[in-house]
Nucleic acid binder design. Sequence first.
RNA 1: GCCGAAGUGGCGGAAUUGGCAGACGCGCUAGGUUCAGGACCUAGUGGGAGUUACUCCCUUGUGGGUUCGAGUCCCACCUUCGGCACCA
Length: 860
Amino acid sequence: MSGGREEGGYEPAAIEPRWRERWEEAGTNRARGDGRPKRYILDMFPYPSGAGLHMGHAEIYTISDVIARHARLQGFDVLHPTGWDAFGLPAEQYAIRHGVHPRTAVDRNVATFKGQMERMGWSYDWSREIDTTDPEYYRWTQWIFRVLYERGLAYEADVPVNWCEALGTVLANEEVIDGKSERGGHPVVQRPMRQWLLRITSYAQRLLDDLELVDWPESLKEMQRQWIGRSEGAEVTFAIDGHDDSFTVFTTRPDTLYGATYCALAPEHPLVATVTTPEQAEAVTAYVERAARRSERERMADVHEKTGVFTGAYAINPVNGERLPIWVADYVLMGYGTGAVMAVPGHDQRDHDFARAFDLPIREVVSGGDVTEAAFEGDGPHVSSGPLDGQDTPTAKRTVIALLEKAGQGRARITYKLRDWLFSRQRYWGEPFPIIHRADGETVLLGEDALPITLPQVARYEPTGTGESPLAGITEWVETTDPRDGSPARRETNTMPQWAGSCWYYLRYISPHCAERFVDESAEKAWMPVDVYVGGVEHAVLHLLYARFWHKVLFDAGLVSTPEPFQRLVNQGMITAPAYKRIEADASSTSRYIPPAEVTRRSDGTWVHRESGETVERVVMKMSKSAFNVANPDDLVEQYGADALRLYILFMGPPEDDKVWDHAGIHGITRFLHRLWRLVVGDSHGPAKPRSAAPAEGEARRLLHGTIAGMTRDMEQMAYNTAISKLMVMLNGMGELDAVPEEMLAAYLPMLSPFAPHVADELWSRLAETSDRFAGWASTAAWPTYDEAALVADEVELAVQVNGKVRGRLTVAADASEESILTDALALEGVVRALEGMQVTQRRVVPGRLVVLGAKPEPS
RNA sequence: GCCGAAGUGGCGGAAUUGGCAGACGCGCUAGGUUCAGGACCUAGUGGGAGUUACUCCCUUGUGGGUUCGAGUCCCACCUUCGGCACCA
């Protein structure tokens, strides 16, 4: 049989659009729900910014696409959807800047994104596309808020927010950098305002425990554990000398209670005002006011500078009746524990620092260190501690907790660092709350029939300057009536934060058009949980914790069937790129960086700006326009094709590793695709390889089955870089044959198709012109299987080691006996030389690999 | 400071988990082909030494250890990158 016809070479632009159309027409990317085993392959949906698709998107979505396409070849029914996380600040700011409605901006950006995503050949089921800003979507976001509210998990409270006077608005934490507004650099202060919060803290323990149920990177689980920050200890109640009031502290070291020499309250602690004596009032007031003015960031900046003021009051130590001075100190945080601490300078370094600064007594109650020098925070026998004397820390903790419980002055307690989730924003572009406030002060949750509460059309969506959302100014929207009795009421004018829509979007994909419920009940049971979730580690604590929280609430309400939403999680690494920096330029210079095209490498390895001759520094950094190091996926697709870009992204390294973009590297991939094209079709550099209908034999058969075996393992482990290298090795091997068995190509192209789907299907269809073996498409074929027996070679080469060093090589039949191998090995010239004057003490054959000989000098 | 991950050629990386370090690719060198540029093809490419068609030594951040044998296991240290950071 002859090879293909002579014709034009590999031209991705000529074939890629055609195949995408065919897949779309045939619906090959659709999830069927036909009862086959399922795989739900999800990636973190994009925020459709005005900047379009960047290389980070290209990486994450290529990874998830390869997982999805591979699963389809394995016969799974695959759900692989995408959509738009389109509420939030960036759309609003873009809209303000360009003077268009956020809706218009989002629609425009989505159109750009969708085109770019389609050009990458990602096999999304577009029939399930969702948009968090579509009222038919956020109706259900509001509906889930109702579930939270009805379960007592949503409440209003006065909490500090970031207030920027100059901009006249509240800012999100992301918009505050080092105590100043991101835009304009104006001062930002903490100011209490009425806000909605979600009681995520009541799920703290389960969010911690259920990390055991999921297959996530250990480092990411650890980040969530630290964020939740469970700590075991006790609370201890101190009476105040001469007052009826008392206060409670939280401590992880109740065993050191006999070593307490003072107590400290947070500046915001409600008792500060009551306990302060008249003589101290002026100093305390001044200190509290100063602390209030300092932002949280300022407070954190000078961590080691301990400040505080004595209130003049004394607390009574419940175990020994000692009078302990009560101080106010800003190293005590109102937001953690009880906002009050018992201070044990001998065994807590912070208290030690404070005691040294204010000349307070330091007492040793656990021996093992020198408390005059530094706090001893370790374990050891307790001393000067009454009934605890001689006990170690765990025992002393139990003893003292028992004592306190008996006296009614304390108990064991667990606290978490995790705070309740501040769930409202003073913004236009977010989900409205299904809440109204009656004139009589009652807060009313609107019924399901009122949903969706849609955003009104407005002329201005800029911040109002009053700290309220722009919605507050739209009288006809705000003023409403209570549907129960028609009495006047005002709508809640805060909106939900951007995280809300992404807390449950993975459920909506399952039944995106379901009108009766947020997710179809039986479809939910069929598809959940998400089998593989691919996304960036930047969402390690926020999105991934919030989504787990909502999911557990829905689970408790009997609305979903799994306790966790995302079974396996994969974090892709960040793609960075080299940039060239002027060494002399100061930070404010507008031209700190030189475009790579204007830079040349000197022979000594340094880099020089050709035009000016100045030496520049090569730095690897995040891609950014100002550093001229952005690689744009769209441009690369145009230049090299989607298949080449997909292959190259994965070939750079393992998915989870950070990668440095190297433009030159993609040429290797392009060459590979051209060689493959030439082998099958032929091009101007050579004709197609002759093909044979006969089965692969000998070396070719081993190459085929070895590649399938290796690829199968690599795909399972997501070792895509080595999988691609195996495809290169097999292609090189096929190139050396006189004729390529069609059997090899029939296995090769399906294995290539998850990575380079367009060219795989194109070549497959070319082959179909001359052979019946190539029915259908490579992308819809079955993943090939291999024969274990075909992996074994007839002859194997063994390395012969003497004391761990290779001294010879031996080619033997695969089934040669150990004895004959050893005999042959000992006769090898190099081995004989190495064994001169030596006595062989050990001989072993590692099958298929090497011969091990141990030897030591012969006794003389 | 605490927690986590990682250090392998000029570069990206590989090594079936204790068994021939450097697969595959980039880059580079030489030759071929081409009107030219590019593309393509062939060969070479960790370092060093020598008696240079061959042989030896060294080499996976550093220093020790276990083993016939260590990139891989153990101990100590160094560096880099992430996360947290007055959390009582």
